[in-house]
């Protein structure tokens, strides 16, 4: 059994710089429940999976691997959630993975038949990460229901690649894998859509974002953290505090100064 992902021992920075041909990339799958996310996970990884618990949480952690064009990809199937505003342990796990562990690519899986509801989560992820791919799944169901989705337009609007799939029919999987690969190698420039709030709120966000930057550097999505703090997200505050404590102990014990959060390449 491979060790569960740990947020502070993962040698992200090394890998990011090397990007050699045999690199292993980490891919996170986020999405609402009932989007066929697990079907996609199964279709990508086949039987190369193992499940356990997220450290310290009663949330199932599923991880699998696949190879594509000589690279190995570790896929983390995040719990299905409607939001990432820490309403539940599931949402906390998904949030922590995206902001602290910083997967090489975060794939947001959307249900093609309920795009509007699913878009909420996608917009939240776009505020938290840069390397995001939107995967519109269940496209076969949407066709049956007479739903037409213009993915090129969507991609332009949101500033990230959009891929249509039908995981259960294995449609669009190789295209998805290709896009994931290109993004992992930094060949795709993204410009994730950031929601603009009222002037009053935007002012507050900028004020706090400055302090976030001076406290955490650019290791965390500063605008998003600022917004969450303004919302009084106690769970996020606790997890920030916890990480700082953890870091302090580690430094005390080893006297080294490895970055607490994976540094962006």
């Amino acid at each position: 059994m491979k060790p569960l992902p740990s947020t502070h021992t993962h040698p992200r920075s090394l890998k990011q710089h090397k990007k050699s041909d045999d690199a292993t990339f980490r891919i996170a799958l986020a999405g609402n429940p009932n989007t066929g996310k697990s079907t996609l996970f199964n279709a990508l990884t086949g039987l190369r999976q193992h499940t356990g618990n997220w450290p310290g949480k009663t949330v199932i952690h599923a991880e699998g691997t696949y190879s594509y064009n000589g690279n190995s990809y570790t896929v983390i199937d995040l719990p299905g959630t409607y939001s990432l505003f820490s309403n539940s342990a599931d949402e906390e796990v998904a949030r922590d993975c995206i902001i602290y562990e910083k997967p090489d690519v975060t794939v947001v899986v959307l249900d093609a038949t309920a795009m509007e509801r699913n878009m909420n989560l996608a917009l939240q992820v776009l505020e938290m990460a840069d390397r995001v791919v939107l995967c519109i799944n269940l496209i076969d169901e949407a066709k049956k229901k007479g739903i037409h989705i213009n993915e090129k337009r969507l991609s332009k609007q949101l500033g990230v690649p959009v891929v249509k799939t039908s995981a259960r029919n294995r449609e669009g999987l190789s295209h998805l894998q290709k896009v994931i690969k290109e993004m992992a190698y930094g060949k795709i420039n993204t410009n994730p859509y950031r929601i603009r709030y009222s002037d009053e709120l935007e002012e507050k966000i900028s004020a706090i974002e400055e302090t976030v930057l001076s406290t955490f550097g650019d290791r965390l999505p500063s605008r998003w953290v600022a917004l969450r703090l303004l919302d009084g997200d106690q769970s996020l505050i606790d997890s920030l505090q916890h990480r700082i404590e953890l870091r302090r102990k580690e430094v005390g014990a080893h006297g080294t100064d490895e970055p607490l959060y994976p540094v962006e390449a």
């Binding site: 878009m119 739903i147 037409h148 213009n150 949101l158 859509y193």
Partner: peptide
């Protein structure tokens, strides 16, 4: 966004 890109 959905209104622009999705037709029912």
């Amino acid at each position: 966004i959905c209104h622009e890109s999705i037709r029912y």
